[in-house]
Amino acid sequence: MPPRIQLLQTGRSIAIRSKTSRPLSYPTPLCLRLQQKRMITADQKPLPEAEQNPGPNQEQLPHVSEEAATTGKITGEGGPEVEQGTPVQEVLKRDEKAQENAPKVMQDDAKPSAPKGTRLYSTSARRLAQTQAIINLGPAELEPSGQIYGLPELPLPSTSHIKHRYDPIIKQVTNLLMQDGKLSVAQRNMAMILERLRTAPPPTPDPRRPLLPGAPPTTHLPLNPILYLTLAIDSVAPLLRIRSQKGAAGGGVALQIPIPLGLRQRRRTAVMWILDAATKKRSKGSGRTMFAHKVADELISIAEGKSSVWEKRGGVHRLGVASRANLSFGNRRRPK
């Protein structure tokens, strides 16, 4: 008789692993996730800890010695040390039977013994502070030691280093102005731009296109041309750029993915836009100041809200908002 076909049993055992429950990539809400990603180790602001349910191995009975310690603490007898383990000597003190069976070295150690000899030299070290106090017993104030202008105040300002003597944004914009590696020409242009910002009448602000929050009133700007330049550039700097990823949307269509930009990248984008707009302007006069004046006029028109750069920034931001659903694609690895 042929064996019945057993549909529900297999001939040999198949290793069926239960499907591991793959945790979601981000089970915590967005706000906590952002906070956890901060690389802060300061004690003042400890990272918030997520409240989670205890796992299967948590909340079990404590270890035997921990239990003994707790009991000892309650009864007042003093149980075993939990933190660093109990020394053998203490165990021996408590246990008389063990004392008898202890090795001879330990038994000798337990008996008190007188010092056998004395050293010829002192072994105590004098504290360094005491020594210094003895030396400094003389006049409290030292006489100035030959500096003409006195010692500089510490910490030194960041601009005191020769390689960082200009403001960071000045350095970056100067380098972006540079053509054919001619840095000194670019620096001259930069100086002329700032001089133009200094001497041009203060801009009339446009409430529809506000500068960065916290900016001083525009009448204060011309006397601080670096701030003027910084405000104009930072106000039109885009927060993101759009990366079009080929094939991500399927069907050969590129997917628009917004990518956040860093500070220098934002400024660079804004300066390139400004330079594009400035080169398209028509020069009014002639001579070497013309390029610088065109750039400066563009900066002024940004502060006045008239520049076309504002539209460029708005366009990028609009695209970024429209494609915000594609944000998660930006973090994925490219498919192999």
């Binding site: 200094r198 001497t199 041009a200 009448p201 203060p202 011309p222 006397l223 020069s283 009014k284 006069g285 002639s286 001579g287 100041t289």
Partner: peptide, 17 residues
């Protein structure tokens, strides 16, 4: 006109104090 703009001497800056 362009030369006149180049040679123009400006003697005052209303922004300066």
């Amino acid at each position: 006109e362009r030369k006149a703009l180049r040679k123009r001497v400006v003697l005052s800056n209303t922004n300066a104090l």
